[in-house]
Computed example of a mutant assay.
Amino acid sequence: MCKKNVKKFYSIGLMSGTSMDGIDASLIQTDGFMIYDYIVNCSIDYPVDIKVKLKEASEQFHEKNISWADIHKLKRSLSDLNLFAINKLLEKNTALSLKVDLIGYHGQTVYHSPSDKISIQLGDPKYLSNRTKIPVIFNFRICDILNGGQGAPLTPIYHAARFSKTFQGPIAVVNIGGISNITYIDRECVIAFDTGPGNCLIDDMMTKYFSKEFDDEGQLALQGDVDGKFLTTLMSDEFFNRTPPKSLDRNYFHKYLKSNEKSPQNLISTLSYFTANTIVDAMKYFPSDVNKIIICGGGSKNKYITQKISELSKKEVITSDSIGISSRYVESEAFAYLAVRCLLNLHISYPTTTGVQSAMSGGSIFRPIG
């Protein structure tokens, strides 16, 4: 049993998810085991031009046609936006602005391929550390990937720390971001993996057909019909036959959308049902039945998806917001927590959460110069 560290760190977490819509920032106090205080959160939206450039960059990496000059400029722009998020966060609690010990900087994922030993998060941690004069932890995923893991999901240990004291297990914590992931928690047993697309396909099709960034509360999905044949095609993909742990790149399922002759409204309904169905289907890999499903992430606001998860699973489904845990900031809080664990060389990934050979720490530390 590890002895708990006596120092309580003030740690900032910066998270930009696969929805590619902005930055969430959180300041917590933790010793890497317990979380003592959830102090303040904030978020900023990416400017439209950054959203466009990020999707272009993601496509470039997939097509292996990369403009490194453009990528370098994008990294600096993203780092400036993260710096702005930090300043906005600390303006909410100026008393702690000089007490921050550490920043956990996830960066923006644009390409994820564990089979090729690659997961690319854009950002400039050295620049961010020098500007803030605070040590920055970056590169959370690569150590796991180089040791046989998927590099994702990394938040399960935080899910266990955050939710297991509130609920008796077994429970499932589902994060619906661009990609959905699920964590099974029952005492010391923690199992996790990506379940499939979360919001990414829905958001991209909303932009394409309706000039909107997302389906607000699932209102459009609620009005359409599910295309059963197309749903069967999606569910037949070999990803769903892979035994967990497993992870997914946000562009993986776009191959099914290249030629679409369906009603745009019905397409949104089908993709939304697909997200819910893959989450429920993933529970067949759990060692025992769960008594509660807790949903966080942007998809927790989609009433169609949460309703379908409840109907298909026949389980009690709640959002983390309903128990006072902001669904938006679970992941940014998680990377503040993971940063401290990395600093202390504590484990952040496990064979049952990423498939890594053995439990290990990760991350690279960047300290300010001067």
Rank of each mutant, 00 (worst) to 15 (best):
A95V: 05
I39F: 12
T155P: 06
L248E: 14
G198V: 00
G363Y: 08
L102P: 09
L154C: 04
H254V: 12
T275Y: 02
L54S: 03
P114Y: 13
V280P: 11
T183I: 07
G32S: 00
K308G: 00
D49G: 11
S16T: 08
T207W: 14
N93I: 13
E333A: 03
S259I: 13
K99G: 06
A334H: 04
F33I: 08
Y10T: 14
L312G: 10
G178F: 03
V290A: 09
D124L: 01
F214C: 05
A172Y: 00
I118K: 10
K4H: 14
R250D: 10
F239V: 06
L78K: 14
A172I: 01
V290G: 02
D227F: 03
T232C: 11
K314C: 10
Y350I: 09
M1P: 15
S211N: 03
T270E: 08
I71V: 13
L81M: 08
I86N: 07
C296M: 06
S310M: 00
S236I: 13
S236W: 05
G149C: 04
N260S: 09
R162A: 04
D49S: 05
Q60A: 11
I325S: 14
Q150V: 03
S327C: 13
G363F: 06
Y38H: 15
I191S: 07
I28Q: 10
S269W: 05
A95Q: 05
A172R: 02
T207M: 11
Q108N: 06
E213D: 09
Q357K: 12
K314F: 08
S327N: 12
R341G: 04
A334S: 13
F230P: 07
P47S: 08
Y252Q: 05
F140V: 01
S272A: 07
P264D: 10
Y127D: 03
G32T: 04
K7L: 13
A85R: 10
L222N: 10
F138V: 03
D21W: 09
Q219G: 05
A161G: 05
I118L: 09
I86D: 02
I202Q: 00
L231A: 09
Q29S: 11
E311W: 03
V52R: 12
L267K: 07
C189T: 15
I171A: 09
M235C: 12
L312C: 07
K55N: 10
H72T: 13
A161N: 12
N181K: 13
V6S: 14
F163S: 10
N65T: 09
N345I: 00
H106N: 12
Y158K: 04
S97K: 07
D101R: 15
S310K: 11
R328G: 10
Q357S: 15
E188P: 11
A161Y: 00
G104Q: 02
K208S: 05
R187A: 11
D101G: 11
V40R: 15
Q121M: 08
G218I: 00
F274L: 07
K212G: 01
T155L: 08
K133C: 00
M235L: 14
R76H: 05
P153S: 09
H72L: 13
